[in-house]
Structures are given as C-alpha cells and as structure tokens.
Amino acid sequence: MRTPSSAPVKFLNLWQIRFPIGAIASIAHRVSGVLLLIALPLLASVLARSLQSPAEFDALRAAATSASGTLILALATWALAHHVLAGIRHLLMDVGIGSGLAQARRSARAALIAAPIIALYILVRGLW
C-alpha cells in the first residue's frame, strides 16, 4: 500500500533503456566537457609553471611523459578530441546540415570512433 504523500512510482532505470547511438555520443560530449572543465584550472597552473624557467618547462615535460602524466593526458586528449568532433557535429546540425536521422546516426558513430583514434595518434606522436 502506498500513501498519497509518497513520491510517485516511475520507471527510469537508465540501464534498462536501450539508448540510440546519438544518445551515447551526447553523453560522451557531456562527460568530455566535464573533464575539460576540470582540466581548465590545471591548464592555467601548467601555463604559469611552464613560463617560469627552462628548468620548470622541462620538469613539466618530464611529468607529461611519466605514467600518471600519460594517463591524464590520454584522458584529456580523448576528451578534447571527442568534444571538438561532437561539437562540430552539433554546430552543423544547428544549421540543418546532417540533422536528418540517418546522417545524425552516422556522424555520432564517426565521432565516437574517431576521438580515441585521434587521441592515440596525438599521444604516440608526442606533440610536446
């Protein structure tokens, strides 16, 4: 028995809902955005340290190639790559380019696949 005052029963178990590819690309866009937002204050402090002296600059570069540094950079480059690709997708869809369902599904899949590949390429090539 339920009393009238209790919160209404709802079905909203996200694990029992089959999400289309567009929804996966969208939540990844949100997650990558949060990661980049967290990275922003860190980026400012990296900027500050990198300008201090050549020694500090090299220390930062060494930290970037350490195990934990590589992990953080891998996450950050994936986040940036996905956020940029999914962002381009949304900017185009806003003006009606690729906003049909079939094209939107294809571009969502493309962004999800391309982002880790780009991130891996940047990491392996080592831009810093």
Binding site: S50, L51, F57, D58, G87, L91, L127, W128
Partner: peptide
Amino acid sequence: TAVMLLAAVLAGLMWLLLGEPLDYTRWY
C-alpha cells in the same frame, strides 16, 4: 565561443604539428 575555440584548437594543432619542436624559448 565554440566556433572561436574550434579555430584556436586548429591553429594550436597546426603550430605544434608544422612548427619546430616545442621548447622553452619558442613557447615563451
């Protein structure tokens, strides 16, 4: 801001990919 930042990301990527190897003098 998305469009502006997109341009900045592309410019930064070009600078890193096409320029000399990154060092303190160039960065500073």
